[in-house]
Design a protein around this nucleic acid. Structure first.
Lengths: 132, 132
DNA sequence: TATACACCTTGTAGTCGCTACAAGGTCAAG
DNA sequence: CTTGACCTTGTAGCGACTACAAGGTGTATA
């Protein structure tokens, strides 16, 4: 299986696959006579894992850790759970931040909706330090 | 007022201020004899505006637009409102994405909480394509 | 006066996770 | 024999900073 085919199968670009190889999260496959990368099903599985973790927002660093744990079948589960839980915490924080931000944006916009011309209240809200 | 003082006042690093100047969102201040940047209160106000907009998640490009509108006191309000509203839309989308992601992470972790050893269900959830 | 130290200057490179592009090699079909 | 799709490598760009190097300035103290 060549890189383009694998890319289509996984829904990523060929460049991304090469990037994962450079980054050391995807093993270098054997090469054909023409020096083309030649992937097998285990590469596809690995790439799938990486993509799913990325889609869930795990960083490359975290994914490296997850892969290490995943490869050590014996004593993985607890450590994996810890990583995933830490990540969930980060996601929760991000959501909370964005919700606070949304409240503020809405407050700003409510004021502006009253049709005030001339001096724009949104601009003023930005200029003054209305405490984030 | 020198760059360090302004930085402390605004809660950013001096490098960030120089970056804003390079990017053209903060005007180049006059220089002292020693070639130090010499800021006045209007710079502080401008920097405040930028920081507040950044904290609200506006991109530098958006901020450039906001500043242009803010500087044209006459016909700003409607355009500003539109920008802010578009931004609110983006924030809403981000929150929805993160919430979907959180649901998935939680589902993964619930399975793992049952104390399964050996074959970790979190790893399996990542390996299989449990439909994001 | 010397010197130590905090502060300033410029320019360059690194961060993250790709993405884009250039310049060239390979292979099958028409 | 040429076209076109695919592959190769290497390098540079994105956004919003951040870090660092190498050097100049200003002030307080020994």
């Amino acid at each position: 299986m060549r890189i383009g085919e694998l890319a289509r199968a996984a829904g990523v670009k060929a460049e991304t696959i090469r990037y994962y190889e450079r980054e050391g999260v995807l093993a270098s496959p054997p090469r054909t006579q023409a020096n083309y990368r030649d992937y097998g099903p285990e590469h596809a599985r690995r790439l799938n894992f990486i993509r799913r973790a990325r889609d869930l927002g795990f960083s490359m660093t975290r994914i490296r850790e997850l892969l290490e744990l995943a490869d050590d079948r014996s004593r993985a589960c607890h450590a994996v759970d810890t990583l995933a839980r830490a990540h969930l915490g980060e996601v929760n924080r991000k959501i909370a931040d964005l919700e606070a931000l949304r409240r503020e944006l809405r407050r700003m916009l409510e004021n502006c909706e009253q049709g005030t011309v001339g001096t724009c209240l949104v601009i003023e809200a930005l200029a003054e330090g209305t405490e984030a």
